[in-house]
Design a protein around this nucleic acid. Sequence first.
DNA 1: GCGCTGATTGGCAACGTTGTCAATTTGTCC
DNA 2: GGACAAATTGACAACGTTGCCAATCAGCGC
Lengths: 344, 344
Amino acid sequence: MEAAGRQRARATITDVAKRSGTSIKTVSRVFNDEPFVRDGTRERVLKAAAELDYHPNMAARSLVRGRSFLIGLFYENPSPNYVVDLQTGALDRLHDERFRLLLFPCESARAMSGKLLQVARTSGLEGIVLAPPLGDDPRTVAELREGRMPFTRIAPTTALDASPMVGIDDVAAAQAMTQHLLSLGHRRIAFVQGDPGHASTGQRLCGFRAALAEAGVAFEPALLEQGMYTFESGLAAGRRLFAGRMRPSAVFAANDDMAAGVCVAAKEHGLDIPGAVSVAGFDDSLISRVTWPQLTTIHQPTYDMAHAATDALIALIDGQAHERAIDLPHRLLVRGSTGLAPQG
Amino acid sequence: MEAAGRQRARATITDVAKRSGTSIKTVSRVFNDEPFVRDGTRERVLKAAAELDYHPNMAARSLVRGRSFLIGLFYENPSPNYVVDLQTGALDRLHDERFRLLLFPCESARAMSGKLLQVARTSGLEGIVLAPPLGDDPRTVAELREGRMPFTRIAPTTALDASPMVGIDDVAAAQAMTQHLLSLGHRRIAFVQGDPGHASTGQRLCGFRAALAEAGVAFEPALLEQGMYTFESGLAAGRRLFAGRMRPSAVFAANDDMAAGVCVAAKEHGLDIPGAVSVAGFDDSLISRVTWPQLTTIHQPTYDMAHAATDALIALIDGQAHERAIDLPHRLLVRGSTGLAPQG
DNA sequence: GCGCTGATTGGCAACGTTGTCAATTTGTCC
DNA sequence: GGACAAATTGACAACGTTGCCAATCAGCGC
């Protein structure tokens, strides 16, 4: 009776070998899809394995092969929608792969700088996917390279570097959005930029300014607000903008979460969207479809980016050459939150 | 030169033993915080380890101990905010623990039924945390119990069961929300229920009806809408409700995502919130603060639930007795989306 | 100094798998 | 039927760590 509470020991490769009347090596071959196993033998092994509910022991496998088959996804991102897209992209790439994904949410990229390699080694990671803004820190990148830890970065492709990376052209995307606003007649356009620790922040601002310059519209420092890529920071920035003496006719927030905050601030001030003020976001995250009206935004293929970055990382780990930078397409999505500039 | 591209082999316990002039067993003791190691010896070992950048090999450790130190988090949830809260809660509990967390997003709970144990064994999991609605399926629960796989469930505590679980009292919570709406004078209250595959769906409806009955208000089947816990399904339900002949003065959606959809539908119909119609949600997820006005909702401690469930699971794995059901407190949050019922 | 106790250390056999290499079987062609 | 190549199978030594147990050392009471 005392044995009832204990889990019965897992079957090992030896058990399967015995039951199928073969050697452990042959069982090993079957479970690794190696050639040179007669069909009949393979069936006997599989049958015995099924009867014993045998599953290969990952630890033993890892030990003897000298590999952990562990990949780490490092991110520090305030937007759950973005994070889940990242995870899903990475996990889907791993599906039916031999690798496992370990999550490393980081409090702050700055705090991680210099400790990342340490963490990776402790966990026995074989490679790392750096999501924004972890991949934006030159020190982290240098450290990983020095430590010969394979990694790929998800980062603006305009912020180039020798390491493999995946991203979109943030400059061009922000430029396209600004052009859209300009084409609607807006001239007094505010820009809410994101967390200064993200490379995308600078890139998007750069695109914004480029479009203004191109159209011959002067950049107005009073219309540049600092945000942190969070809803709350967007709300605060919106409140400042709408309370200020120089009220914009359009606000371009560097991501959807902040844009949603700007929308709420607008409503607090009784401003109709897009009648009195247009609001644009960036990311095409779920939140952009929840605001009313829905947000005009830039579709960023977050899922695909994570998928591609994971793909590249696996290639890297396997020692296959891989192209340096992958530039994924973005898309301007015009929805209800932007409209013609008010007269005057 | 050819060695330049290769990673230099990781230091092993033997290397550390040699360099520190001790035995591997002593090094092992130091790294496992075992007693009976002289301070001086410990220091020598630590110094050597640091110099060699030694990190214990997890695979070897797992193999010899016969444990994987892997925990699986299974979920099938359409709401990223909820999912990230779950993950964070579980990960934080694991912080500085010996366990690792593996993610298992499931396409559909139904499809997983009967395969979960299989997946767990393949991955070598030591235990499982079942998030809604995975823990609601009796077949899954029975299967895991039969296979002696330790697990805890996050599920409505009113849907009791012999297995350890963590949750809130969904009936009481839904009842409280309904009472809130009734107290504002609403009598024609619609209810948008969630995915029928979730136990919470039935529980919340139950609480809704209990509050109506208590107040002597007849339950009106025409005001019961089927949703799927997604924003889109809430939007569709809202459109049906506002287009129907029996327009409600208040809508209680069983989660925030659907409530946000109802809000959008209301705006499409030119209905002011809360002037013409009140809308209430459930979860207190990020989305409830993004709508305008912000949603009156039930705060559900998702993070704490995942934390507690993981805690209970570890206790279970360690063979410690643990209380059967943990009921966490919920809280009614009255915000701008609910107001006095219109006259009439 | 002796004997005893407990603290400290080390030796060695697992753990379950795969890589290497040798042994055996099968098939093909004269 | 024999020779040769290819297919198939098996034996055995790693892999890096911890558990078990024996060995050694230090301190204490006499």
